[in-house]
Design a binder for these strands. Structure first.
Ligand SMILES: NC(=O)c1ccc[n+]([C@@H]2O[C@H](COP(=O)([O-])OP(=O)(O)OC[C@H]3O[C@@H](n4cnc5c(N)ncnc54)[C@H](O)[C@@H]3O)[C@@H](O)[C@H]2O)c1
Ligand SMILES: NC(=O)c1ccc[n+]([C@@H]2O[C@H](COP(=O)([O-])OP(=O)(O)OC[C@H]3O[C@@H](n4cnc5c(N)ncnc54)[C@H](O)[C@@H]3O)[C@@H](O)[C@H]2O)c1
Lengths: 239, 239
DNA sequence: AAACGTTTGTGCACGTTTTCACAAAGGCGA
DNA sequence: TCGCCTTTGTGAAAACGTGCACAAACGTTT
């Protein structure tokens, strides 16, 4: 019951799972579920129950033995730990195909990450409005960032421009970057970088497909069971 | 020099990095670089050189001591190991905002994953053409999958429909799924699942932002250096 | 108030991944 | 051919993440 304050460092693998728990808990709360055991939460999250308990234990001892966890309270604690008690506006660099899809996507703002600005280098795009936000020129990025105290930037430019975009974001004062381009970017020490690379994800799947085929051919086509992505953080279940 | 065949199982963490090396090697080859050391590749990939060598060693002993790796040969070997020697057409479920962006995205087909079909449940969308492909009805998914021997499916439906989409994909014969919805899906044993969740990525960044703030406040605002995402597989560099 | 069934929180063993460190191998020039 | 310089490939150690198993804690029932 001793709810310790966020002094402990939470393992990165746990940090990556907390948002999943958070979403599930929120959904359950909306449906009227007031209490959940680690077993139930684990089932819905597609992970091991012990893992859920260990993950939650980093927040403090908020469960009740013999009963489970209070859903509403847990939602609050996870949000607190993840820093989701207030909004984090983001600035999108690149108003192309992807940038526009992201800007128009409500699930963005709904989760506490409203689009605080969009910038592009193409004069044909500057001035247009996507997702209710007017596209500004890349040169104005510092203004955009400072005006709204933005600390998270999203790179949605072609790969060749990604490093430029990162440099501009950092110069503007952004301290976290989510990079959707396939290019590896370099940033100064102290800046956090997340990466979402579609091609990488597909190529991982291709590898598994390939193995399935090899395995089947290699040993006289038995059942091709036993193959599913082994546990890796931030991947979906495969019951 | 004994190039062993793909009998060894490659660690999942390595599989996730090979596509990054592959892209860099391809780019370097296009620029006329014929040979690279693990050090150079590591620099561009934003990882440790020893890690590069160990990763590549799973493919076989393809380097030359004192010299480095032949770029073209390495590209071939990685492609072979990842199963990229032929195309893997994909089927997209959900022709909304994201589905259309994905279908219209060339970097998809360019990397060996052409859009082999798109399906939706909404009659208003069925029949329209996005990215050069006609949207078919979800009911026809098995036809679409079988006709093109598709084994990879992409879920771009709202979260509430993701499990239905997964079930339909599996029933149609797909064996690998990339899920863009925030919902955790359950699939039969033997099906591979990858997940890309925007909200999770942003929430991880928010956590790091939060920590930065806590750290600065907690101890009389010193330099806020020393903070960057600790090494985690499949995340970008942060030099 | 005691006995019971349930579920948490965590010590511990195990598996995986990262990093170090260096012998072995290759190229090259003398 | 020999020695020197560079760089690989890989054991072994360290760090990290996972899952089992169980004592401790709690609510409930008797
Ligand atoms: N479209 C998709 O579905 C998709 C999916 C996954 C990844 N991606 C990646 O996302 C990125 C963007 O893809 P897209 O399809 O939107 O491309 P796009 O060409 O449609 O849009 C890119 C935009 O970035 C702008 N831009 C270029 N250089 C810039 C700079 N230095 N500063 C600011 N803006 C700049 C361009 O003017 C353009 O508007 C690419 O790296 C792509 O690989 C796209
Ligand atoms: N738009 C984005 O930028 C973005 C970014 C990240 C993640 N996502 C996620 O991607 C998913 C799709 O987002 P969106 O913005 O494209 O939504 P959307 O509403 O624009 O499109 C969803 C499409 O799925 C179709 N659909 C619904 N149920 C279906 C079913 N059972 N089978 C087949 N098709 C069905 C709908 O008819 C619609 O065309 C969501 O889960 C969202 O959270 C979107």
């Amino acid at each position: 019951m001793a709810g310790q304050r966020s002094r402990r460092r939470i393992p990165e693998a746990t940090v990556a799972r907390l948002p999943v728990y958070l979403r599930i808990l929120g959904e359950q709360f909306d449906v009227g579920v007031g209490n959940m055991s680690s077993e139930e939460l684990a089932e819905l999250a597609g992970v091991n129950a012990a893992k859920v308990r260990k993950d939650l234990s980093y927040l403090g001892s908020y469960g009740t033995r013999g009963v489970g966890y209070d859903v509403e309270f847990l939602v609050y604690q996870i949000r607190r730990e993840l820093g989701l008690t207030h909004d984090w506006p983001v600035v999108i660099v690149g108003a192309g195909n992807l940038g526009q899809a992201l800007a128009g996507y409500n699930g963005f703002g709904d989760r506490g990450f409203p689009v605080g600005g969009i910038v592009d280098i193409d004069d044909a795009k500057v001035g247009s409005v996507v997702g209710g936000v007017r596209v500004r020129h890349l040169d104005d990025i510092t203004q955009v960032v400072q005006a709204r105290s933005i600390s998270i930037g999203v790179i949605a430019t072609p790969g060749a421009a990604a490093q430029d975009a990162a440099d501009a974001l950092v110069a503007a004062g952004v301290t976290s970057i989510l990079n959707f381009s396939p290019t590896v970017i370099t940033v100064p020490h102290g800046i956090s970088v997340g990466k979402v690379d579609l091609a990488v994800e597909l190529q991982i799947l291709a590898y598994h497909e390939q193995r399935r085929i090899n395995a089947a051919q290699g040993s006289g086509l038995q059942s091709l069971s036993g193959l599913s992505i082994p546990g890796e953080s931030r991947r979906g279940a495969s019951a």
